[in-house]
Design a protein around this nucleic acid. Structure first.
Lengths: 253, 253
DNA sequence: ATCCGGCCATGACGTACGTCAAGCGGTTCC
DNA sequence: GGAACCGCTTGACGTACGTCATGGCCGGAT
């Protein structure tokens, strides 16, 4: 019935999930914890940050965490599961903007407009931490490290968004995509060579600017040439070096 | 000899340029002035912001304002002229990330890495205002409106960068491109229907993910169908409504 | 004057990837 | 049980746009 419960004999692997944290400790994948600790923020001030966090969820697949046009009041850090951000145009066509894994932030692109400019939709069972933005901004004026961390996050996302517009073949895009996911999982302590795609082929295609059929075909070819092993949404990276070589034009420099 | 001086009988139009500002007043196109005035920032605090501005330039066409890898220490606001940001990969291929008009900021994508991730190159005669980032960040902790304005700018750029990855035909891209330039000039008080392209066809093509030949062909067709008038790098928008219609899928929603 | 190098335009041709169509396994709902 | 649906795959075919090649124009250097 529910998510994450074995059904029909098929093994459903647990979501990557952050532990809960406590009053004295952030979730292990917390968006701010790691950045602030060991960065001159003492425990007392850290607990101030902790106070304004609110755990929200779980959301079921397909449920919206925020919707386009909702009044902006908070940013969210993914605690567990995968979130897709997307636009839907007047004719109902979808444009997938990105996927957000545990530890990553949602809503930074909403600050200036004061409404969320896109939907954030759970792809599987999702839990998030909610940071009231006015409270966070106020705290940022008192704790420079928090301000700095916000600037850094925004700046990083901006830089990455800028790079994503490169011309590239379907092979390059897909190789870069799986390597990128792999690296992001690894950075949060999950295995790097074996990953589960929470999103459909057509979401991947849409995100990469390809057709879903092309995604299928390229993944198949990657498997035929031994680069990786595909089983439905489970992907095993076999030849990371070769994948990097395929994607090298996108891993820039 | 210099830029902006009539040469060979050809009229060189002056750059769009912001006036100089004074101790009590920002440049008219200032990146912060308009945002802060009338936003609860009193004159005294505004002058604090003003103190950390440093006018730099002029730069000649082709000169770098910052280079990839330079230590990050400041963000820049364009005062006059047009700046191109770009990456150059190992094989010498260029990737144009964006064009920056008077009043727009450069360097926001450098905060997190502590080095600039791309080159910023003058396309014509360029003057900029330099804001030391450590000083600006410190000021931001004392003046919430400054902090807020920085968050807003970062957030806005992020949102726009996210949208730029849409699949689109060459026609859609070019129509959206000229309309976008036009709107940005208009926002700074320059005429909206008549614009001068500071960048070459191949820069435009690179930025839009097209071939330079395609840019030539599409502009020609736009002219043949009366949408606009092209004379070298001068473009006159004739049928704005029709252009919007061509670009409608990219002006999203 | 002459040469050269950018920049721009235009034509001929090839191809990577989109579109269309068909089929298949799994899940849900009657 | 079967029908309907969805996600995924695979094949056949068309096309938008890239690549290559040519030529014209302009400005700068010799």
């Amino acid at each position: 019935m529910g998510q994450g419960v074995p059904a029909g004999g098929r093994i459903v692997r647990p979501n990557p999930i952050a532990d809960d944290g406590s009053d004295q400790k952030f979730c292990s994948t917390c968006a701010f914890g790691a950045a602030c600790v060991g960065n001159g923020v003492d425990k007392i001030r850290l607990s101030e940050l902790h106070c304004l966090v609110e755990h929200v969820g779980p959301y079921r697949p397909g449920q919206s965490i925020v919707r386009t046009g909702d009044r902006f009041g908070a940013i969210f850090a993914v605690r567990s599961g995968t979130v897709k951000t997307r636009l839907v145009d007047l004719e109902g066509r979808e444009l997938v903007l990105g996927f957000h894994l545990p530890g990553e932030l949602i809503g930074l692109n909403a600050i200036h407009a004061e409404t969320y400019p896109c939907d954030a939709v759970a792809l599987d069972t999702v839990e998030v931490c909610r940071f009231s933005f006015p409270a966070l901004a106020t705290l940022a004026t008192r704790i420079p490290q928090v301000q700095q961390e916000l600037f850094r996050r925004l700046s990083k996302d901006l830089g990455e968004a800028n790079l994503r517009k490169q011309e590239a073949t379907a092979d390059e895009r897909l190789a870069a995509f799986v390597l990128n996911l792999s690296a992001r999982y690894e950075a949060r302590g999950f295995p790097a060579d074996s990953l589960h795609l929470a999103m459909s082929r057509s979401d991947i295609a849409n995100y990469l600017g390809l057709a879903a059929e092309t995604v299928s075909r390229v993944l198949r070819r990657f498997q035929d040439t031994g680069l990786l092993k595909v089983d439905g949404r489970d992907v095993k990276l076999c030849e990371v070096a070769a994948l990097r070589d395929v994607a090298k034009n996108l891993l820039h420099r």
